[in-house]
Amino acid sequence: MYAFAYHRPGTVRQAQSALHKHEDSKLLAGGQTLIPTMKQRLASPSALIDLGHVAGLAGIEKKGRNIVIGAMTRHADVASSAVVQEHLPALADLAAHIGDPAVRHRGTIGGSLANNDPSADYPAAALALGATIITNKRKIAADDYFQGMFTTALEEGEIITKVSFPMPSKAAYAKFPNPASRYAMVGVFVAKKGSDVRVAVTGASNDGVFRAAPLEAALHTKFNAKSLEGVSVDHTSFISDIHGSADYRGNLVTVMAKRAVLKAQGK
């Protein structure tokens, strides 16, 4: 790790001003991606602004037809939350399978969404559920938020404070983990709300998380795994590596989408 300065703000405002003050500084949430990256000397922030002691950033509540989750809420807390398990079980299930138990005790939803790793799980949920990313400055619709691998709509000095998930009528996430890293090689989140069906795919594309229009169209006609038979997504911009070439990932998208639909139907 390269040397850095450490700051521990107590409020979001203090965090924001620390970010402004220190050029090339970074926010530290759970650190489960950032710290390994820094250890390998692949990132060299001048300062880390630790959000761990900022009041009011963690917590889960049901607000009307939405589940609102604080940015510093740990994956394990989302997974075990009675509120999430009752009203948005697909999200609890997703959170319960991010990384491993120790990672889930540190990693946070805000950190995951801010980083927008192309193999992260939460972006699929946020996009498929049509979540709203709430920052210290504004509210961003998920459709506008994800802008490609490791790229988001967040501006300089902008800090995610909460994420609001509308409750779907049916939803599920199916992940095919990379055999080595266990990150999503393909993860498909399917959400049905009224007649609207949204399908978001993580892990597969060089452009990061995306909505799979052909799958959405097929499921819109009939929300059934059979509807996806023979339906595929264009895999030309998919990731190809030693674990899976683009066509294999393309196949997995349809297979995982089918499994997600079955899961959403309780099958």
Binding site: A180, I242, H243
Partner: peptide, 11 residues
Amino acid sequence: LVTASYMDYCM
């Protein structure tokens, strides 16, 4: 070496 960590070498 592409498989130089547990991210790519599957244990």
